[in-house]
Design a protein around this nucleic acid. Structure first.
Length: 282
DNA sequence: ACCCAGGCATTGG
DNA sequence: CCAATGCATGGG
């Protein structure tokens, strides 16, 4: 089936994250297609005129899963983002404007599952994206379910019943094992976070061990697609803001947080385009 | 053999 | 309140 996306849409550009630095075994890029388990079915997503083509197991259509698959893929591809008002606003920004124009067709992808979004963040804390992806792939293949090409991401329920010894050889630090188990076993309703305002989401997440401001900000940005999310503590964003707005001078987290005011009310998309722009420039 | 990489908790002033 | 430290793997 075809999933239509607002034009312009550049599938390969938008999948840069999965093609280059941080793919894992739950989201596999191969031969121009993205393989992933959506709504319990492994799908293959590829570029098509007007959007993307989704190939799914033939019986999933008969079973009436088509709507759930289209919904899940749409969220994965960042359909909730409203790019048109952002482009209109950015066109009057002297620095960001040209970046957005140069990245025409870029639609930031989302992490559609809250537990997955948080575990991705935990694994990525402090270490390089490549190291995190290597560790996470071992985690996914150990606790997830193998489909054809991709694995389903381990569920919260599965992880709630895991223990320390199950993580042997995966490369997690002791503390990060505790963060994942603590998150899985906590009584926090992850699906209900979407009903809360940004600051309440941050408060609820940072109350858990191992989930700090950076993790909460990326959850707002890449899971909930909140327009005002601004991950000022992110090393990549700090370098991007430094390059585009401070002539390369290193910026503190506090400085970057303050500079977020420049991008109101489009901090999230601004951050994602700046990161992408810096990646292409470097 | 280093050193840094899309943080966070803990400890000590 | 701020500074220093340990954590784990991958790549340069």
């Amino acid at each position: 089936m075809i999933l239509e996306l607002p034009e312009p849409y550049d599938f390969a550009l938008s999948m840069t994250r999965f093609r280059e630095l941080g793919p894992d075994s739950a989201s596999i890029w191969r031969d121009g297609r993205l393989h992933r388990v959506v709504a319990g079915r492994e799908v293959r997503i590829e570029a098509a005129p007007g959007g993307v083509r989704i190939e799914a197991p033939s019986n999933s259509l008969l079973l009436g899963d088509a709507d759930a698959i289209a919904e899940g893929v749409g969220r994965f591809l960042g359909l909730p983002f409203e790019l048109e008002p952002f482009r209109e606003w950015a066109s009057r920004e002297p620095v960001l404007g040209p970046v957005v124009v140069a990245l025409a067709g870029f639609r930031p992808p989302l992490n559609p599952e809250p537990f997955e979004a948080l575990v991705i963040a935990i694994t990525t804390q402090q270490i390089s994206l490549r190291a995190a992806a290597a560790i996470r792939s071992r985690f996914v293949e150990h606790f997830g379910v193998r489909h054809e090409v991709a694995w389903s991401f381990p569920t919260r329920e599965r992880m709630a019943s895991a223990d320390l010894a199950d993580f042997d050889g995966l490369g997690f630090s002791r503390s990060k094992i505790g963060y994942v188990l603590g998150l899985a076993r906590s009584d926090l309703d992850l699906d209900a976070l979407g009903l809360l305002p940004d600051e309440d989401v941050v408060a609820a997440l940072t109350a858990l061990p191992g989930l700090g401001r950076w993790t909460a900000d990326w959850f707002l940005a890449r899971h909930l697609a909140r327009p005002r999310a601004w991950p000022a503590g992110d090393l990549g964003l700090r370098k991007a803001v430094s390059a585009f707005y401070a002539a390369g001078r290193p910026l503190s987290i506090r400085e970057v947080r303050t500079m977020g005011e420049r991008f109101v009310p489009f901090e999230n998309l601004s951050a994602q385009f700046l990161l992408m722009g810096a990646r292409l420039a470097g």
